[in-house]
Design a protein around this nucleic acid. Sequence first.
DNA 1: TACGGATGTAAGAAGTTCTAACACAAGTTA
DNA 2: TAACTTGTGTTAGAACTTCTTACATCCGTA
Lengths: 220, 220
Amino acid sequence: MTMTRRERYREETRGEAKRIALEQLAELGVEGVSVNAIAKRMGITGPALYRYFKNREDLLTELIRDAWRDLAEAVEDAAEQSAGRPPDERVHEFGRAFRDWAIGRPHRYLLLFGTPLPGYHAPPDTVALAHRTMSAFIGVLTAARTAGTTDRSTLDEQLVDWARSRGEGEVDPAVLLTAVRAFTRLHGVLSLEVSGQFGPMGFDPALLYRAEVESLLAGD
Amino acid sequence: MTMTRRERYREETRGEAKRIALEQLAELGVEGVSVNAIAKRMGITGPALYRYFKNREDLLTELIRDAWRDLAEAVEDAAEQSAGRPPDERVHEFGRAFRDWAIGRPHRYLLLFGTPLPGYHAPPDTVALAHRTMSAFIGVLTAARTAGTTDRSTLDEQLVDWARSRGEGEVDPAVLLTAVRAFTRLHGVLSLEVSGQFGPMGFDPALLYRAEVESLLAGD
DNA sequence: TACGGATGTAAGAAGTTCTAACACAAGTTA
DNA sequence: TAACTTGTGTTAGAACTTCTTACATCCGTA
């Protein structure tokens, strides 16, 4: 793990560029992330940055990778720290961690769950990174009360296949369905909130979010 | 409403520009919509298009306006055509119309519900246009079975205020909550599906969508 | 028919990403 | 220590972008 002098400097430079990119992302959105502008703020010329990132998309991919990792750590923390507590509380804790992360860094949340970048194709490792969050969710939900789902059929099979392929082991399809379903519900609220769609409606999205968490604990 | 020859020609030109913009949107995403490229494909020079649209953002706003209007018409159609049928069926029909619209034009759906444009602020009339869809939803849900919601408190008040301010009249807060809640759930599925987030999971999002529609008919 | 506004042009400023060619410094090896 | 390699920066420039300005021309309407 020992890095040479040069490697350390290189990582330092990449880090600085990414930090500035995140600021631009927050201020101007994804379109506003400019290689040239980042370089200028670092005190170097534009083309110099191409020594550190293959191109603009490569830099953005790095941002996405970091975001997935960051989110995974946040929810995994919540899952670990609530270990042993009642299942329902754990689900609440997970929901809270997820929401806090999203609301605290809306632009990064949108980078993951918003409109996909034009010709962007996620590298395999980011898919794996993304799965960590879902995996933590499944873990928390396993012990929670599982609602009696009416139709255990095609969807169930597909979900079990998916979980197996991701090394999740043999999980009850009902848990998987609940996980995916719950996740889309939480995302539904967060996505609209972070995009400002609730703005003109003038109510507190946190209450809606809470209602959703409670409804899925009540068993759908 | 009679238009002079010139006005007709003007509308024709604007329409052509918007059609090409939509193609670019579908192929290259929002970033790929280029005033210059549109002009080139129309056989005129770039600056000429500035006679028809104040700037690029103005053109995009027009696209958003059209999309809201189009979506509203789609769901209003579904609501009208199912008038008189059992409430549950009507909710299903609404859900189907909403989904069909989204899946049929993913890029336009993302234009409305995806990542908001950088410095973009929605003009008031688009907000009103957006509300038409929600209004149709509320209408369909009014007759459907209303789930017993546990907490009728702050959220209820806020929702009632909102409905009143939008000229929705006096609506049962429970219906409003169900409407907003249901909408966010449907959006949760559609948003992830249209963004391709379900891709690597290899299951049919339509089944998940259906499950969500059914769950909210079952009363949460 | 003659006028005036609507529609187009070319030129250019200020950006963008990204490549190519070159200079220099810093680390590695003979 | 000297020589070589590699990493890091530079400037120049191509090919784009949005958008403004100034000028020409067409065409509908009065």
